[in-house]
């Protein structure tokens, strides 16, 4: 029983990291109908930016994180929207999906060219503290990650439902034309979504890189898992991203421990397929009707 709980706790922490990235998928989809398959690389880039600021500029981790947040909002938020999304979105989702796939490959190879294909160690924001609760060993990193992911989801939910800007963003997500008629600055709301996505990616990088280690292709697995998590939880629901992330993280651990590590990587894909077939709106998502 303790082993099972151990797997669930650790899986929840990993799932929390997936959830932060998955939130980026749901936010962009809701705000601008964008599917971003370069999301994994948007986690990898802040990881390398933080490493640069830590090792070359000599900044402490908190400062490196804050500086990377600002940089990510400018480049991965506003820059990505302006350079990639705005020119392509008018042609539909498919060209944008293809463009982000290309961007993913390009970014990976660029980082490989600059930083080499080697793996780099990354400091943890949490201490090494380990608690033993009735035989269950819980690390500060696991608890911190879960709490942080929950807090981010709760804050995002509160922002979207209780603030004027959040409601305006929701209005844009539901009906752009109606939102425009109501006097909402649609482009600004969309930009906010991109900025929030960049922040979430940077936070995910901070939490997951100490365990995964920094490498040019570290975003491949993470991006894919986050996409599965977003679909499983519900592409149009922020809490769904958290649920999807946790389900993927926990299931991976259970399959790895009780079946085989060989099937571990496939479990998210299997669940993704089941959800797509039987509940395409995701576990917490709502059915969307679109005019054609």
């Amino acid at each position: 029983m303790t082993d099972l709980l151990q797997l669930i706790v650790a899986g929840t922490a990993t799932g929390g990291c997936y959830a932060l990235a998955a939130l980026g998928f749901t936010l962009l989809w809701q705000a601008s109908g964008t599917i971003n398959f370069a999301l994994g690389e948007m986690v990898m880039l802040p990881a390398f930016a933080m490493l640069f600021l830590l090792n070359v500029a000599g900044l402490p981790l908190p400062l490196a994180f804050l500086a990377t947040c600002a940089l990510a909002m400018a480049v991965l938020g506003a820059g990505f929207k302006r350079v990639v999304v705005d020119p392509l979105i008018r042609h539909g989702v498919v060209p944008l999906v293809i463009a982000t796939l290309g961007l993913s490959i390009g970014v990976k190879q660029a980082v490989r060219g600059v930083a080499s294909a080697e793996v780099f160690t990354f400091p943890s924001v949490f201490s090494d503290t380990l608690w033993n609760i009735g035989g269950l060993r819980v690390s500060a990193a696991d608890i911190g990650t879960v709490l942080l992911a929950c807090a981010v989801v709760a804050a995002l939910q509160a922002f979207l439902s209780r603030t004027l800007t959040g409601r305006a963003m929701q209005a844009v997500a539901q009906n752009r034309d109606a939102a425009r008629v109501l006097g909402i600055n649609v482009q600004r709301m969309v930009l906010y979504a991109f900025l929030a996505n960049a922040l979430l990616a940077t936070l995910a990088a901070l939490l997951i890189t100490p365990v995964y280690l920094a490498k040019f292709d570290m975003g491949e697995t993470l991006g894919m898992k986050a996409f599965y998590a977003a679909i499983i939880g519900g592409f149009n629901n922020s809490r769904g991203a958290l649920l999807g992330g946790v389900i993927v993280g926990v299931l991976e651990n259970l399959v790895g421990a009780y079946i085989s590590s060989g099937y571990k990587e496939g479990v998210a894909l299997l669940l993704f397929l089941v959800v797509i077939i039987f509940r395409p709106q995701g576990l917490l998502g709502t059915v969307e009707e679109r005019r054609v």
């Binding site: 899986g11 990993t14 697995t221 259970l254 399959v255 790895g256 571990k264």
Partner: peptide
């Protein structure tokens, strides 16, 4: 990437 299951 994740060795939790192996360690458990």
């Amino acid at each position: 990437m994740d060795f939790t299951a192996a360690v458990v």
